[in-house]
Simulated assay, not measured.
Amino acid sequence: MRTGSEPVQARSPLRLRCGLAVWGLAWALAGTVVFAELGRPGWAIACGVLSAVTSADLFMVVRHIRQGPHYQPGRDVPPYEPVKRDGRGRRSGPRNPPP
C-alpha cells in the first residue's frame, strides 16, 4: 500500500545483487567440483542445490534488469487513503447495504 512517504528516487540495487549472485554461483560451482573430487557426495549435492538456487536468482535479476524501470507514480499522485476502521478494528459502514 502506498502511504506517500516513499522516497521519490528509490531504486532496487539489482546490479549489486547480480554481482553477488555471480560471485555465489562461482563459489557454489567450485564447491560442487571440489567436494565431488574429494568423495564427499553430501557436500557436493548441497553445493549443487545452492548452485541451482543461485542460478535461478541470477536469471530473475537479469530479467528484471532487462525489463527496465517500471511505472512509479509521481509527486502529483496523492497517497492512497487508508481503510477507515471503527474503534473495534472493523471497517466503518455496512459491508452489504440493505436492498
Rank of each mutant, 00 (worst) to 15 (best):
A21E: 00
K84N: 07
A30T: 11
V8K: 06
R66M: 11
G24V: 00
L25E: 04
R75Y: 01
A46S: 10
L14C: 03
R17Q: 15
V77D: 14
L20Q: 14
V33R: 10
V34P: 02
E37C: 12
P97Y: 05
T32H: 14
R11Y: 02
V83K: 11
R40Q: 15
L29K: 13
R90H: 11
K84M: 12
G24L: 06
T54M: 13
C18D: 08
G93R: 05
R75W: 02
Q67K: 15
D86T: 01
P7Y: 02
G19Q: 09
E81C: 10
G42N: 13
V33C: 07
A36I: 04
E81Y: 08
L50H: 14
G31L: 10
T32G: 11
G31F: 09
G74D: 07
G31N: 14
V83G: 06
L16V: 09
R66F: 09
L38T: 07
D86A: 01
P79C: 03
R11E: 06
P13K: 02
G89S: 04
A28K: 03
R91P: 01
E37P: 00
A10I: 01
I65A: 02
R40T: 07
R95V: 01
A52P: 07
R40F: 11
E6S: 05
L29P: 03
M1H: 09
H70D: 12
C18I: 03
T54S: 13
R15V: 00
W23E: 13
G87R: 11
P78G: 08
T3I: 08
Q9G: 06
A30M: 10
V8D: 06
A52G: 08
D86G: 06
A46P: 02
G19C: 08
G74C: 07
P13L: 08
V22M: 13
P78N: 08
Y71K: 01
P73K: 11
H70L: 14
W27Q: 14
L58E: 06
L16R: 15
Q67R: 15
A30S: 12
L20R: 15
P13F: 05
R11W: 02
P94R: 10
F35W: 12
P7V: 01
A56Y: 11
L38I: 06
T3K: 05
